[in-house]
Design a protein around this nucleic acid. Sequence first.
RNA 1: GCCGGCGUGGCGGAAUGGUAGACGCGGAGCACUCAAAAUGCUUUGUCCGAAAGGACGUGUGGGUUCGAGUCCCACCGCCGGCACCA
Length: 859
Amino acid sequence: MSEFSASSTEPADESTSAHAIQAKWQKYWAENETFLAGGDDDRRPRKFVLAMFPYPSGDLHMGHAENYLYSDIVARFWRHRGHNVLNPIGWDSFGLPAENAAIRRGADPREWTYQNIEQQKTGFKAYGVSFDWTRELHTSDPEYYHWNQWLFLQLHERGLAYRKKSPVNWCPNDQTVLANEQVVDGRCERCGAEVVKKKLTQWYFRITDYADRLLDDLNQLEGRWPHKVLQMQRNWIGRSIGADVDFRIEGRDEPVTVFTTRPDTLHGATFFVVAPDSDLAAEIAADAPAEVQTAFAEYLATVQKTTDIDRQSTDRPKTGVFLERYAVNPVGGERLPIWAADYVLADYGHGAVMAVPAHDQRDLDFARAFDLPVKVVVDTTAPITGVIPVIDLDEDGVPIEPVETLDAQHPASTGIALSGEGRMINSGDLNGLSKRNAIARAIEQLTAAGTGRAAKNYRLRDWLISRQRFWGTPIPMLHHDDGTVTPVPVEQLPVKLPAAAGLDLSPKGSSPLGAAESWVRTVDPVSGDPVLRDPDTMDTFVDSSWYFLRFLSPNSDQFAFDPAEAARWAPVDTYIGGVEHAILHLLYARFITKVLFDMGLIDFTEPFSSLINQGMVILNGAKMSKSKGNLVLFQEELDKYGADALRTGLAFAGPVEDDKDWADVSTTGAQKFLSRALRLSHEVASPVDVVFKDGDAALRRGTHRLLADAPALVEQTKFNVLVARLMELVNLTRKTVDTGAGAGDPAVREAVETVAVMLDLIAPHTAEEMWEALGHEPSVGLVTWRQADPALLVEDTITAVAQVNGKVRAQLEVSAKITADELEALARSDERVIRAIGDKEIVKVIVRAPKLVNFAVKG
RNA sequence: GCCGGCGUGGCGGAAUGGUAGACGCGGAGCACUCAAAAUGCUUUGUCCGAAAGGACGUGUGGGUUCGAGUCCCACCGCCGGCACCA
């Protein structure tokens, strides 16, 4: 025992009392179920506030601390505003990490998952989040994934779930296929391995059927979702407007259709390209001379070995093989040599393009690499607006092109394709038209000739949902000997996962479920024939595409969700989560919502009315990661500072959507502020029922200003400013107590009560403690916010500014009711104003009584 | 390459076209204390000046306006998304 410590106060004092306070109130909330959503008889307006549910990967981290703080602030806010608030929590508990952890330890993924859930649950409770715990759900429970299977069957029935053999993204590390959205820069979104292409038969959801609605409905969300997310979804869907054009292929009965956004340049097509890995290429090559077939086979083999990463590098030289076959241009009838080249993608458009090298950079690069002709059909030097310029005509009435200008910049020599605006040349009766008009005219002509039509294409691909892994929802389909595939009858759902015990879960390219003999072999309940279950499980993004609805009837075994409850609560009013889901989860949830709408189960078409994207919590400018060893541990910080200081520090650190560097988060500053506020609540010396009316006027004004401003601050998610404003009021109250009206003044009670009720959003334990110290019954979380008194918002005197040429020269204390003339006169007589004007001439005087006068002077 | 966003003190950040830098961190000083911690108070954009006061100041350059961090144009820099999508 050191003699130094005997007389010293432990520095941990602040946080130990904070820990006592938080334990006290967490117990109270749990025992009283303070934050349950009201039932059917609750007449208050409803708010559905939701944070993206967590994956139970271990303990909570600082990202969770931020995410669930924000949703808690919003939920608490609406309770204070007299709303019936639903703020539920669940776990996105299927997925690869559980399986990988299980493989490493030879354990059951179920155990790992549910242990982590318990740990996270404890963390959330210690953090003081006002969840309605009675609606907790886990997507890995059969009671939940039952309805994933139901959803799958519904989509199947509507033709929206189908199987096809197609090249897919394959992660060689996780040994499973991936959806397009899960491939980031050619790598597996989860493990970072280079993705390869494989041709497999897989289940898809037909999200492309909804492409137009998914794109167009984004306009409804303008201003309610972050602009960035809307833009990302628009790009992802990537609608292109143009035309389909039919090309006859010599020696083939059926014409081949290509998609183009530039039907105006049809006359400039000089060759034709097919994707080497398309069926069309194989077919065309099959009828080519033997040496061409060999060359093509070699080329195809090379292409298939190329990863997406290499394939996507734009400066990669163009490669291809001439197939010695010809397509015929539907306008003009020119013969176009057919090439196979990997710059054309098999799964976009029709897997074939007409090449117009003069006006498309990729085609030009290819033409220059293989010495193919380049024909300019748009004069991009011609003006595109105003009157059509005089064009010299030859004796046949065909415009003579200004040869010199074109030569100087001919794409074949410059290597730069002319993709800009201009006027058509060398294009028959399109000549002289602008690009835009020529596109319209070309489509008309193609339609009339029956060789083309207006068309749209999307970057978006169908959603591949099969996964060759164990820990997910079994796909409820049965495979018959004759190759037919039939659904499991809906009344036999759920198809439960077998026990993991005895199964080899290690990745091997096919689902571990296939080896669960007694599970995979079953009998078709319709025909009685022996059948095999589909061994794949669903992408976990299926689970999360509708979970927000399950919170409305979390225990029902009658339906996925009760449509009546959905009508009451949904859609989600405020949804909060990281921007990493800008496409994946949010696009899928929007898609499934539209399907459910089409099924008549819900009456809305967008699941999340408003969306908040929080930034990341980083450390010293770098993303935190286990491998870098720069983790800030949630539990450690919580132990050190307490939940309220953590919450306040985070909320105050900066705008919601910005990244927060933990190095800049001042938890000690937060602690200091919270104890100042708490101390005030103990100092208040007036009785609980004191009338505020006669309290200190300046403090009352400060209180009511905050009452007036706070709701907008919360609704605009300016939580950092709300904390700053609370600090201001605490400071003002401190001053009033110490050097002003004193602790017994009614205004002090009014101010401290206001702080307590508003602070509940940020630091709920401290707020409850204050509320109790002030002589009130808990819970402060259910107290309605006081209205600002407009009479208290107007001041008797205010500081007006006098400017000369926009520069402030004097501050004037004036009556709030001062007239424009009085204010101007006062300003004119001010010595500093007179000096600033000097002998210059006043040209104009702007008066905005009572706040501002500006003299515009000259000379 | 295409699309989007952002540039404000030493730092995190405030600011319906109307006093730029609220609030906090950090710094400096003071009070209380034997001393420290804690707490409270004062001060803190840069430059000139002893002060009064003045000049400059929101990435750069222009513009609109009585007045611009805020609106418009161009440029520079950083960040994010997409990318051989015809």
